[in-house]
Design a protein around this nucleic acid. Structure first.
Lengths: 333, 333
DNA sequence: GTGAAAGCGCTAACAA
DNA sequence: TTGTTAGCGCTTTCAC
């Protein structure tokens, strides 16, 4: 194993000089810098992560609690995680995967000084982890928006506005009875923040336009067609807002079949990542979930927190409606 | 921050005694142990991860390179990762998420002594990362099976046997022309190991039964119906083996429609996680991809490697055919 | 059965 | 502009 002492010896300088060349924390003569950099390259030296973090009191690691539970939209989660990892790497941070969706995992990582900050996903409206985080000293950021967002900065997609946007759009298209086919029952049962905000926005949007909106838990499986069948049996429901990626193909298939049987056509707006929405035919419009960008935004807030900068308490990425016929989906920023 | 010295002082013992109480590496009197354990609890002491790993030369961290690329089956990847994380935690190991699917990320983590071992997913038949891993001294395990598996232990689902199993089963059902609707083109183009092995086994199985098998790249989008349409246009193809989770609902929908139009019924075997296969209606049979168990098995091999034990060069989880009518899917182990 | 002390490899005062 | 050195918090010899 190559150590900083080896490099110092090879370059004929002291170990602190090598350290300062790497950190750039003091000015080094051109000549010395070159010799050191060459020695580093020749020995292919990498500083020992633990030694560095012990001395500097910083791990350059962010702990991430990502949901592995059922009902969550794996595509979206993966894209968010990918965004986090990419942005974190851009700031020289690594991601430590924390399991056990409880506070214990967070506390363990924080108390062992294994991470510089915590990033917590899959937030419930009244999330029990919040109090633990507040007591933790380790900077934390939520991807989600609990009720009465308190001391911990939150980053999320603006699901409430998205719900309202969809309702307004469907009202504009002339519908008076519309339905939200949302998350699976288990997601609603644990009062997942985004599902509740979407519902709230959707119903508010309906109320604002004087139309009738109903909300339905939707299984992520083929059983979702039963829900569609049942909701559509109320012949007055003429449009749908679907937020369930896994159920989307099934829903569209069943709606097409019902349309054929009745000679009608239902308007459908999907809330899903743009690439996914594009692969589904029959949609009227789509609202993109900018999952990767959400991950990046969250990672950026962590950086700012770590750098001691000011960060907004709450940052919500705004929804954008895209006609399904647009190609590519989405409007220029 | 509480340190081991604080604990030692509170318990009235030396630092080394506290350390030995925690590690159990030497015998401690009942009385002393109790005093130390009480002090640890009262101070809610957690050893500093970096300090520990610097002194012990072990990080208790496993680096994981998981695919964030397109075309991969996100559900399966998530389940594998979940299995890895859970099993690793059972052995007191954490998972560091490595990005940049190239060898550089692996080398960076290894050379910085940031990880005790590496776990690499999404293996190609001739994977360029293999030579890097071989030169690395850090123990590594692959989830996948490259051609001519060499020095690095491999764990994977036995896709080749699964392909053969499906072919045999469809032949048994009386079909003489069958089709494999497999991974998306991009997955095949980078010679992903599992896709090639599945194809090989499928074609071998067909040959062994004297029937005709064809293989088709399948987009993970709604465009997959075009492939189905086209393949089914060869009226002699009467059965399908589908290995593309995202396309599965679309495929089944189109096959149902074709069946209605022609008054025929195609047998379909799906290769997918059991829970997913169960949510799709119309399947004849399913072969489970034991994703979570695969992750666990891989993590277990890492442990054994780290513990200095002997590990099998290659470990393949066998496929099992389950009738779609079985409930729950799968036969008792 | 217990303690003292020498590192682990690095960062960051402090000194020159 | 550079070097010397005291830690960071822990594990593990070595000594008793």
């Amino acid at each position: 194993m190559t150590t900083i002492a080896d490099v110092a010896h090879a370059a004929g300088v002291s170990i602190s000089t090598v350290s300062y060349v790497m950190s750039g924390k003091r000015t080094i003569s051109q000549e010395t810098r070159l010799r050191v950099e060459q020695a580093i390259a020749e020995l292919s030296y990498s500083p020992h992560a633990s030694a560095r973090s012990l001395a500097s009191r910083a791990t350059n690691v962010i702990g991430l609690q990502a949901p592995l539970r059922s009902g969550v939209d794996v595509n979206v989660v993966m894209q968010i995680v990918a965004g986090i990892v990419r942005e974190a790497r851009a700031f020289q941070y690594d991601i430590l995967l924390l399991t056990s969706d409880d506070a214990a995992g967070l506390e363990r990582a924080a108390r062992a000084s294994a991470v510089d900050a915590l990033l917590v996903m899959d937030i419930e409206s009244h999330d029990p982890r919040l109090s633990s985080l507040g007591a933790l000293a380790t900077p934390s950021v939520l991807i989600g928006l609990p009720d009465g967002a308190g001391a911990v900065p939150c980053v999320d997609f603006d699901f409430e506005s998205a719900g309202r946007l969809a309702a307004h759009r469907l009202a504009e298209l002339g519908h008076t009875r519309i339905a939200l086919l949302g998350a699976p029952a288990e997601v609603l049962e644990r009062h997942t923040s985004y599902a509740e905000r979407l519902t709230r926005g959707f119903l508010a949007g309906c109320a604002e336009r004087g139309i009738t909106g109903t909300v339905h838990a939707t299984p992520s499986s083929g059983a979702s067609v039963d829900v569609v069948q049942q909701v559509a049996a109320d012949a007055e429901v003429t449009a749908f807002f679907v937020h369930n990626e896994a159920a989307l193909p099934h829903v569209m298939g069943r709606l097409a079949r019902i349309g054929r049987e009745r000679g009608t056509h239902a308007d459908v707006i999907a809330l899903a990542p743009a690439d996914l929405a594009q692969s589904v035919s029959g949609l009227t419009d789509a609202i993109d979930i900018p999952a990767e960008e959400l991950g990046r935004a969250a990672a950026r807030v962590v950086q700012e927190l770590l750098a001691g900068g000011e960060t907004p308490r709450v940052q919500l990425l705004p929804p954008r409606l895209a006609s399904a016929s647009d190609s590519p989906l989405g409007v220029p920023a």
